[in-house]
């Protein structure tokens, strides 16, 4: 009796995601092993051409740049998010601060990028300010390089990192820190040795929530990047689909991104499982 109802409840969701998510992803996977059509599309002939094309120096360069940019953005985000989440979780005005963090996060993504264009642009707010203050004579090119991309990525995904950290730190029992200090640890020492292991799940989520979207970033590098050091994999996919009409190559690149992100996710699941198993062993 129970069984049938459960399936009934989940059937619509299950069908929807199968047809509109799983099937498309499988198609992309298949396409990556086919030949490209002359004017776009594919030809039903097995080919590893798309994967062979990945060995080109240009592609490898972009792969490395993408890795570096998303790692830098992730690390920076974490460094900012940790103290923020800590302060929020310990403060008396938790819900106000949460609210403040979420507002910009709910502002349209493109408008947030646009704001940075308006600030960092050659005739933007910052250049105007500096010129008026007499600090510089000619404008500085802030935009269209890897640093602009990193800053805007951090800006875009910071709340994604703060929220999971906040929710684990908030559940953390702060009397443990006092116990550690009582037993003779310094304040930074107690945070490092008592708090960090206890909020590990939050840290890992924060890292994943920033790494995954930044690794597949498309709009940010497109709008504030440019030049050979800030063109990312996401832009390659878009170009191959929309401009070069090389669908197998776009598919193969998508598969590459999917593999990297699922690998990151797999590590997370594995880490959780081994932690659970260790806890189990302790019990018995």
């Amino acid at each position: 009796m129970k069984k049938n109802h459960g399936l009934l409840y989940t059937l619509p969701t299950g069908l929807w995601v199968t047809v509109f998510f799983l099937v498309p992803v499988i198609i992309v996977f298949l396409y990556s092993f086919l030949d490209r059509g002359e004017r776009g599309g594919i030809v039903w002939r097995f080919s590893l051409e798309a994967y062979r094309d990945m060995a080109s120096p240009t592609f490898l360069h972009i792969l490395v740049i993408t890795m570096l940019i998303s790692l830098a953005a992730t690390v920076l985000t974490l460094l900012v998010a940790l103290p923020c989440a800590y302060y929020m979780a310990r403060s008396k005005r938790k819900s106000l601060y949460l609210f403040l963090i979420i507002i910009p996060f709910l502002t349209n993504f493109l408008i947030r990028i646009y704001a940075w264009q308006a600030i960092l642009g050659n005739s933007g707010f910052l250049n105007n300010l500096l010129i008026r203050a007499g600090l510089i004579k000619n404008h500085i090119q802030f935009l269209y390089n890897e640093w602009a991309v990193i800053i805007v990525l951090v800006y875009s995904y910071l709340p994604y990192a703060i929220l999971p950290l906040y929710s684990t730190i908030e559940k953390f029992d702060f009397s443990l820190l006092e116990a550690a200090r009582d037993l003779g640890t310094s304040h930074p020492g107690s945070i490092l040795r008592v708090m960090v292991p206890n909020i590990r799940a939050g840290i890992v989520s924060a890292v994943l929530f920033t790494f995954i979207p930044t690794f597949g970033a498309y709009a940010v590098p497109k709008l504030v990047g440019g030049g050979k050091n800030s063109f990312m994999l996401g832009n390659i996919i878009a170009d191959e689909i929309l401009v070069n009409r090389n669908w197998p190559f776009a598919s193969a690149t998508s598969i590459l991104i999917t593999l990297v992100t699922t690998a990151a996710l797999g590590l997370y699941v594995l880490a959780n499982k081994s932690a659970a198993r260790a806890a189990q062993r302790k019990k018995t």
């Binding site: 509109f20 998510f21 498309p24 992803v25 198609i27 992309v28 994943l208 995954i212 979207p213 690794f215 597949g216 970033a217 498309y218 996401g234 996919i237 878009a238 689909i241 776009a250 598919s251 998508s254 991104i257 999917t258 992100t261 699922t262 996710l265």
Partner: peptide, 11 residues
């Protein structure tokens, strides 16, 4: 958990 662009392309 997949980057948006993957969903966009596959759809």
């Amino acid at each position: 958990v997949l980057p948006e662009i993957i969903i966009g392309v596959s759809m």
